[in-house]
């Protein structure tokens, strides 16, 4: 599903040149749950951004769903993204001006679903995330755990093939963190590929593979158990 070949990313500012990723070669198969770990500044988020088609690498190749996308334009990436990818962030990133329903509905709007289809899907996914009772609330009126459940609902409402989660538990206490991890696990069980960046070794264990990054390099890949596609 995902394959990178010698992928590198450089950040250039006026004074310094920072290598965020250096010859990264990874492969992720459909149905996997991959955790990415590493210290602050090792390039985890950069890797996730590139894998999630939010950014382009400077060199190397990136195959996403059999497309070589490293040279894709913003527009091409946006099209692939909205059809195949869901995101969950540490800081939830809900739009403050929109209600729970409207936030979750947003990806469907961009995918041009009909109004009745949108309503049906949003209700289904909110039921699934157990947040239906907050449907017309605004994000500020929700607890962190509730906000993250909304964010997950938004990520899965369009039925993406893969979900990228950037420290989804980082702003949550442990019980809410566990809740989110259980959700991701059950999504994975239902067939959705999940790539998650985390600091927490405990939550990293929820994945069936852990990729360790250090200074822009992949240092180890531990396969937790035999994985069959």
């Amino acid at each position: 599903m995902i394959k990178t070949e010698n992928m590198s990313k450089l950040y250039v500012t006026e004074e310094v040149e920072t290598t965020a990723l250096n010859n990264v070669n990874i492969q992720i198969e459909a149905g996997e749950f991959v955790s990415i770990m590493g210290p602050s500044g090792c390039g985890k988020s950069t890797l996730l951004n590139i894998l999630g088609l939010l950014d382009n690498p400077n060199s190397g190749k990136y195959h996403f769903l059999d497309n070589e996308v490293s040279g894709y334009s913003e527009r091409q990436r946006a099209t692939l993204r909205k059809e195949n990818i869901g995101f969950v962030f540490q800081s939830f990133n809900l739009i403050d001006e929109l209600t729970v329903f409207e936030n979750v509905e947003l990806p469907l709007l961009y995918l041009k679903f009909t109004s009745s289809e949108r309503k049906k899907r949003v209700h289904e996914v909110l039921e699934k995330m157990n947040i239906m009772h907050r449907v017309s609330h605004f994000p500020q009126q929700l607890s962190g755990g509730q906000q993250q459940r909304v964010a997950v609902a938004r990520a899965i409402v369009s039925d993406p093939k893969i979900i990228f989660a950037d420290e989804p538990t980082g702003n949550l206490d442990s019980s809410h963190g566990d809740e989110v991890m259980n959700m991701l696990t059950s999504l994975n069980k239902a067939g959705t590929t999940i790539v998650m960046v985390t600091h927490s070794p405990t939550y990293a264990e929820y994945g069936n593979r852990i990729i360790h990054l250090f200074d822009g390099h992949v240092v180890t890949e531990n396969m937790k158990e035999e994985f069959h596609v």
Partner: peptide
Amino acid sequence: AKEVGIRKVIGADRKT
């Protein structure tokens, strides 16, 4: 800008 980011991540292209 945050809203722009979210909308982009979710699937909005520049034109939208």
